[in-house]
Every structure is written in C-alpha cells, then in structure tokens.
C-alpha cells in the first residue's frame, strides 16, 4: 500500500490520473473502517487532508459551493441558514467525533444508500463538481448515484465540491434508527419547499439501492398545492393530501430486508416521515408567510 500526500488540488488530480485505483481518503470515517477490518487493501491511499481548498465553502447567489471535505460540524455551525436540510442531516451523522471528520464529499464518494446527506441534497437540489486532469463536470446529484455504493465518477475523477441550491423555503430531514444517537439510517427522508419555483422536492435514503427522489409524491403535491392555491393562501394542508403524499413517498421505495430493518418497515417509516416533515415544513412556511404579510 502506498500513501500519497498531495499538497495541492492539482497534485491530487495528477495523482488520481496516474493511479486511478487510488482510494481518496479525507475524514476516513468509511475508508479507515474498511482498512481496520481488512475489508479493503487499496494499492494507494490518496490523502486529501492537506488540500485546504476542500475545506472551504462559498455562499453564492444561487448555490453554496461546499468543498468536498467540509466537515459536518462546519455545516451545522455555519450553513444552517442557506442549507437547513443538510444542516439537519449533518446533525444526525454518527457522533460529534465523526461529524468533525466526515464530509458530504466522503458521503458521495462512498455512495452508500444509507448516507445521511443524500436525501437532503436531493431535496435541496445539488450538483456534484467532479474534476480530473481532463477538466470539470457538474453531475446533477440525482444522476450521481448509480448503484449500491457506486457513483458516476470516472476512475480519474475526484469530487472537488458540491453545489447545493440555497434554501428559498423551509427544509426538513428525518431519519429512523433504532438508537437515539450514533446510528446508521434504517431509512431517511428529506424534504424541501421551493416557494419560488412553487415546487416540493424530496429525497429518500436507505430504502432503495440508491438514494432517490420520491417523484410521484413530488408531482402529486406540486399539482395539489397549485390547484388549491396553497402557496398563496398558506392554508392548512388537508390531512388527506398529507396522507396521500406519504403514501406516494412510501410507494417510491424499493427497500430490502436486512439486519437493520425490514423492507415493509422501511416503506412504512418513509411514509410517516414524509407526512411529518411536510407538516413541519408547511407550518414553517405558513409562519413565514404570515410574518411576511404582517410586515
């Protein structure tokens, strides 16, 4: 095993081009577990800790450009405003120690269906900035997950950043685990209201081979909200509408039975979380609407 320690992003790209089998290592919260337990013996470890750029973020007009290695703790502390869903998701990751090391870039690189940031990214809208010596490309996050622990990166590519859409409305995130802290998702659900686009976006984690959006639920809700004039009125959502949204979200799942939970439970729980997160987000939207109108 070789340990590559590029000092700059350019050096990292060059190293990855030269050794496409090199495994990028940032927080180590996935890769080191695999090494410690003898599940993986990569030829090269590509340490990204020295590349300061990866730990920075820029809040732009439309997006937050989040460096691939920005730890979850920084997201919770500094980006709760523009990225509320991701900040909530970040807070559910592992433990304080893990949140100090783990990052969205690492979550994307591992592409585990149980990764906590995926539902929040899907709901907010995001592109993965993949780069190689050949150039940069932006991959919409929906297309980034290609299978269980597989992603759309080419062998010579590294994740430079994630461009996450800034919130223009309330966002929520919920995750089911059988412990109250430090737990891998049995399943998870992210939801973002996009009042400007008059759209709702969602993300489901750990209930299908890849993280995915509950498209049918989104489309149903978009139409129902438009039809009922809810965006303007800020009225209470009828329980039947919320229920149907939950059912459709559950219907988008394609879960498995495993040691963490049954497929039936996952589907059920996604439905419940979809209803609840919609309720919380809508309450927040109504609250802000009222405030705006009063002002």
């Amino acid at each position: 095993m070789d340990f590559l320690r590029p000092g700059t992003w350019e050096e990292a790209l060059a190293a990855k081009a030269e050794h496409p089998s090199a495994v990028p290592l940032a927080g180590g919260t996935d890769v080191m577990v695999e090494i410690n337990f003898d599940h993986r013996r990569p030829e090269y470890l590509l340490d990204l800790n020295r590349i300061g750029d990866l730990y920075e973020w820029e809040v732009g007009e439309r997006d937050v450009r989040l460096g691939a290695s920005v730890p979850y703790t920084r997201i919770m502390e500094n980006l709760r405003g523009p990225l509320p869903g991701l900040a909530l998701a970040a807070h559910t990751v592992g433990s304080p120690q893990i949140r100090n090391r783990g990052s969205v870039g690492g979550n994307l690189g591992a592409a585990s269906p149980a990764g906590d940031s995926h539902p929040a990214l899907l709901a907010a809208g995001a592109e993965v900035e993949a780069e190689s010596v050949r150039g940069t490309r932006l991959i919409p996050v929906e297309r980034f997950y290609t299978g269980v622990k597989r992603n759309a990166l080419e062998p010579d590519e590294l994740i430079r950043a994630v461009r996450v859409r800034k919130a223009d409305g309330p966002q929520q995130f919920a995750k089911v685990g059988t412990r109250n802290a430090m737990v891998i998702a049995v399943c998870a659900f992210g939801l973002a209201l996009h009042p400007r686009a008059r759209a709702v976006r969602t993300g489901i984690g750990s209930a299908a081979p890849t993280p995915l959006r509950a498209r049918a639920a989104e489309e149903f809700l978009d139409a129902a909200l438009a039809e009922g004039g809810f965006w303007d009125s800020g009225r209470d959502l009828p329980p039947s509408l919320v229920r149907q949204f939950g059912e459709l979200a559950a219907g988008s799942c394609n879960p498995i039975d495993d040691v963490r939970g049954s497929a039936r439970y996952r589907r059920h729980a996604v439905g419940v979380m979809a209803r609840r997160t919609l309720g919380w987000a809508w309450d927040a939207y109504r609250g802000s609407e009222r405030t705006t109108r009063c002002a």
């Binding site: 290592l25 180590g28 080191m32 577990v33 090494i35 410690n36 340490d47 800790n49 100090n100 090391r101």
Partner: peptide, 12 residues
C-alpha cells in the same frame, strides 16, 4: 478537533 484516532490514517 475531537476525532476518533482509529479513523485517522497515521499519515494524515
């Protein structure tokens, strides 16, 4: 920063 030393590669 608080970290788990088991997840930090020695080289890091």
């Amino acid at each position: 920063e608080l970290v788990c030393a088991c997840l930090v590669a020695a080289g890091q």
